[in-house]
Design a protein around this nucleic acid. Structure first.
Lengths: 213, 213
DNA sequence: TCCGATGTACGATCTAGTTAGTTAACACAA
DNA sequence: TTGTGTTAACTAACTAGATCGTACATCGGA
C-alpha cells in the first residue's frame, strides 16, 4: 500500500468532520425542527465549533439542506439495490412495499425530516440542486412490476405507478409520522413490535386485493 | 326578545375576542409551527393586543393548546353527525372514508397542526385535559359498520376497526401532509382537482377490496 | 372606592451569524 | 538549512436583532 499523501489524509479528516457535523445536525433538526434546532446546540455536540459549521456549510439553512440531501440519497441508494425481476408480480409488490415499510421504521429521523420539510412547504428541497432532479429507482421498478402484472392478466389495468406509490408511502409514513397523536388519542402504539408483522402483512394484502380486483 | 343584560353582552364580546385570537393563532401556528409562530405576529393581526392574549390565554403554549382543542373538537362534531345506519356496509365504509377525505381536504390547517403536534411528540395534546379523554364517534361508527358487514358474511372477520381507521387516515392525511415534498420530488400535485375524484374512489375501492376479500 | 379589563413600554434572554485574530503546513528563495 | 511569505484551517468572544413575557399605569363601570 502506498503511503497516503498528506493531502489525502487532510481530505479524509475534513470528510470525517463534515460527516460528524451532519450526524449531529440530522438528529438535532429531526428532533426539534428547522426553527427549533439550535446551531449552538449542534456545535456543542460536535467535535468542532460553531464557527467551523459556518466555515464548512455556510449557514443554518445550507446545513439543513445538506442533511436533507444525505438522508434522501441514502434511501435512493437502498431502492436502487431492489431486485425483484425474478419474483411473481404479487410477490414483487409485497417485496417493494416491505422495503419501504422496513426502511421507514428503521429511519424515524428521515420521516421526521420529511414531515418538517412539508411544514416548510418543501422550500429547502426546491432550493437543493441535488434533490431537485433526483431519479427515483423505486418508481421505475414499480412501473415494471405493474406492467408485468398487467401483461399476465393478473393486475387491473387502470392503475398508475405513482398512485400505488402513494398507497404504500401513505401507510408506511403515517405509521411513523403520526404515531404520537395517534397514541395520545387512541391509546395504541402503531410501532408496537407485537403488531409489526400484522401491519406489514396488512399493507401487502391491501395492495394485492386492490391490484387484483 | 328580552334586552340583553350588560353582563351577557360583555361575555359575548369576550367570546368574540377569544374566537378572533384563536382564528389568527390557528393560521399562524399552522403556517409556521409552534416554534416558528410569533406571539407578536398573532397580536398584530388581531383586533386586540399581545397583552390581551396573555390575559386571556396565559401564554404561547396555552394559546397553542387552545388552538389544538378547538380544531379537534370541530372534526369530532362533524363525525358525530355521521349517519350511516341506513346504508349497506360497503356504502357506509365509503361514506365514512369520504367524510375524512373531504374534511381533511377542506381543513389543511388542521392537518398541518397535527403534523406539527407530532413533531412535538404530542406533548401538548397530552397536556390538554380536553383532548386527553376525547371520545371518538367515528370509531364507534366504524365498529358498528364492520360488525354489520361481518354479520352479513360480506366482510372478512379479522379486521380491527382501529386498523381500518389507520388505513383511511393514512391515505387522507398523506395526501395533504406530504403534498409539498411529493410535488417537489415527483412533480405531481396530489391536490389537483382533476384527480380528486380518482383518489376519492381509489380509497373506497381499496378499502372494500380489502374488507371483502 | 374597588376591580376587572386594557394600553404602553420595557427587559431578560436567546440566537444566527461575524469579527478579528491564531495556528500550522507548505512553497520557495537565499 | 533556514528565513519568509502565503494560505487554509481553526478559535474565542462578540453583536445586532429578535422574542417571550411583564411591570406599571390607566380606564371605566358598579
Amino acid at each position: 500500500m502506498a503511503a497516503p499523501s498528506a493531502d489525502a489524509e487532510r481530505q479524509r479528516d475534513k470528510d470525517r468532520t463534515r460527516a460528524d457535523i451532519l450526524d449531529v445536525a440530522t438528529r438535532e433538526f429531526a428532533d426539534k425542527g428547522y426553527t427549533g434546532a439550535r446551531v449552538d446546540e449542534i456545535a456543542e455536540r460536535t467535535s468542532t465549533t460553531k464557527r467551523m459549521i459556518y466555515y464548512y456549510f455556510g449557514g443554518k439553512e445550507q446545513l439543513y439542506i445538506a442533511v436533507l440531501e444525505r438522508a434522501y440519497l441514502a434511501i435512493r441508494a437502498l431502492e436502487a439495490e431492489l431486485d425483484v425481476e425474478h419474483l411473481e408480480p404479487e410477490d414483487a409488490i409485497r417485496r417493494l412495499a416491505e422495503l419501504t415499510f422496513d426502511h421507514h421504521e428503521a429511519h424515524p429521523d428521515f420521516i421526521r425530516l420529511v414531515s418538517i420539510e412539508n411544514i416548510h412547504r418543501a422550500e429547502h428541497i426546491a432550493r437543493s440542486e441535488v434533490l431537485a432532479g433526483l431519479a427515483n429507482p423505486a418508481l421505475d421498478c414499480l412501473t415494471q412490476i405493474l406492467e408485468r402484472g398487467r401483461a399476465a392478466g393478473r393486475f387491473r389495468t387502470d392503475v398508475d405507478p405513482l398512485d400505488v406509490h402513494i398507497a404504500i408511502s401513505s401507510f408506511c409514513v403515517f405509521r411513523l409520522a403520526n404515531r404520537h397523536t395517534f397514541a395520545a388519542i387512541f391509546g395504541r402504539d402503531m410501532l408496537d413490535p407485537a403488531r409489526r408483522e400484522h401491519y406489514r402483512r396488512m399493507l401487502g394484502d391491501m395492495l394485492i386485493d386492490y391490484l387484483t380486483s
